[in-house]
Computed example of a mutant assay.
Amino acid sequence: MNIEKITELHTLFSRTENRIKSMEYDGEGLDIPAINELRYVGFHLLKYLISSSESELDKAVNHAKRAFYDACESSVVLHLSKIKEFEEKYQSVISISDVIKDYPDRRAKAEQARRFLQDSDRQDKVSFYAEAEQHLEILENLSLVLFASKGDLDAKIRDQRKQVRRWAIGIAVGGVSALLGLVTKQLGMW
């Protein structure tokens, strides 16, 4: 029995399972490509256990790698989508960097991740997914910061709206007062 490969398989399987669970907990459903790859892991692992064929164990490990890669890529896409949704809600209404001071730097890193996915040559899958995993850590952190900042941003928006209402009421009262003054002057009441 090849303990080294089985340990690698276990590690990959656990990491993939954690990534899939994370997406599931975020309410985004299941990562079907990664789950399909895990099915193949089980299939080839069983064939290995029955036949002791190293090639079956190699296939199981390769499918486990692919499952992890798929789960990472899906997670990157998910976080980019959440960031875009956040920006669509807040960016046109309030300056996000008023609440998240380093937002421009964080946003630039998110853009780097988006471009990485869009422009990458995926021939060297190992290095591609190692870099994708780094981008994923940055995006997960940004998603957490954005989520944590929603309350402060919503409070600032409410304050802005109150100020606009006060300003509009002040203008309206001033306008009505001026109009009344003109009307009463014209009627000779003053």
Rank of each mutant, 00 (worst) to 15 (best):
119 D>N: 14
88 E>L: 11
123 Q>I: 02
117 L>M: 12
85 E>L: 14
94 I>Q: 04
87 E>R: 13
91 Q>K: 07
116 F>N: 03
120 S>K: 08
117 L>A: 08
91 Q>G: 02
126 V>G: 00
83 I>T: 03
99 V>R: 11
99 V>L: 09
113 A>S: 15
113 A>T: 05
99 V>D: 08
126 V>Q: 10
125 K>Y: 00
79 H>P: 02
112 Q>L: 07
106 R>L: 15
93 V>W: 01
126 V>K: 12
128 F>E: 04
118 Q>W: 04
110 A>K: 07
88 E>T: 05
116 F>G: 02
100 I>H: 14
120 S>E: 08
90 Y>I: 03
120 S>F: 04
86 F>Y: 12
109 K>Y: 02
100 I>G: 11
129 Y>I: 06
119 D>W: 02
98 D>E: 15
86 F>A: 05
80 L>Y: 07
96 I>D: 06
124 D>M: 01
107 R>T: 01
127 S>C: 03
123 Q>P: 00
101 K>W: 07
85 E>R: 15
111 E>K: 11
117 L>W: 12
120 S>Q: 13
128 F>N: 04
107 R>A: 11
81 S>Y: 13
104 P>L: 00
125 K>C: 00
100 I>A: 13
89 K>R: 11
98 D>L: 14
111 E>W: 06
113 A>V: 05
109 K>H: 09
110 A>W: 05
110 A>P: 09
79 H>T: 02
100 I>P: 13
128 F>W: 10
126 V>L: 11
96 I>T: 11
127 S>T: 14
104 P>N: 03
89 K>P: 01
95 S>P: 00
113 A>C: 12
84 K>H: 08
90 Y>K: 09
89 K>H: 04
80 L>V: 04
107 R>M: 08
106 R>M: 10
129 Y>R: 04
82 K>E: 11
104 P>T: 01
85 E>M: 12
93 V>T: 11
82 K>P: 03
129 Y>M: 09
109 K>R: 10
121 D>Y: 15
83 I>F: 00
96 I>P: 14
122 R>L: 03
80 L>D: 12
124 D>Y: 06
96 I>H: 11
100 I>L: 09
110 A>M: 06
108 A>M: 12
120 S>P: 00
111 E>M: 15
84 K>C: 06
93 V>Q: 11
104 P>W: 00
109 K>T: 02
92 S>E: 07
122 R>Y: 06
84 K>S: 12
126 V>I: 14
105 D>P: 01
114 R>Y: 14
92 S>R: 10
100 I>Y: 08
81 S>C: 02
102 D>C: 01
115 R>F: 10
88 E>I: 06
121 D>K: 04
115 R>P: 03
125 K>I: 00
87 E>W: 12
115 R>V: 10
90 Y>M: 10
92 S>Q: 08
116 F>H: 00
97 S>R: 14
84 K>A: 10
112 Q>P: 00
98 D>W: 07
88 E>H: 09
85 E>K: 15
82 K>D: 03
81 S>W: 03
82 K>H: 11
122 R>S: 08
79 H>R: 15
100 I>R: 05
102 D>M: 03
112 Q>F: 05
128 F>Y: 15
125 K>S: 07
86 F>R: 03
89 K>L: 03
97 S>M: 04
115 R>N: 15
108 A>I: 00
128 F>K: 06
111 E>P: 07
109 K>A: 13
115 R>D: 09
79 H>V: 04
